[in-house]
């Protein structure tokens, strides 16, 4: 189906899309039809800057297992990083 479920989060950082690096202000996460991945549905993440325009987007489409592995790796890395480094 075209799932309507979307998680949206404000973010601070940068991403690299089709037009190069840009300031990313927003991320959306959803499980829906991919554009490119050979899957019926995929976990999709868009890092975006809607104020700059729709082309300021870095996208990924992962199968569910890969997405969970990536999420766990991100959390593991953050948990093992000293707090003092996270502010800079």
């Amino acid at each position: 189906m075209c799932t309507y479920s979307t998680e949206k989060v404000r973010i601070s950082g940068s991403a690299k899309g089709a037009s190069g690096w840009f300031k990313a202000t927003e991320a959306t996460v959803y499980f829906d039809h991919p554009v490119h991945a050979p899957l019926g549905h995929s976990l999709n993440v868009d890092l975006m800057n809607p104020e700059q325009g729709p082309e300021f987007r870095a996208a990924m489409e992962l199968d569910a297992e890969s997405a969970r592995g990536l999420a766990e790796a991100i959390l593991k890395m953050l948990d093992s990083t000293p707090d003092g480094l996270k502010d800079h």
Binding site: K8, E26, T28, Y30, D46, M48, P50, P54, E55, R57
Partner: peptide, 8 residues
């Protein structure tokens, strides 16, 4: 890109 923006 348009679909991603509209979804957001």
């Amino acid at each position: 890109d348009a679909a991603a923006l509209v979804r957001s």
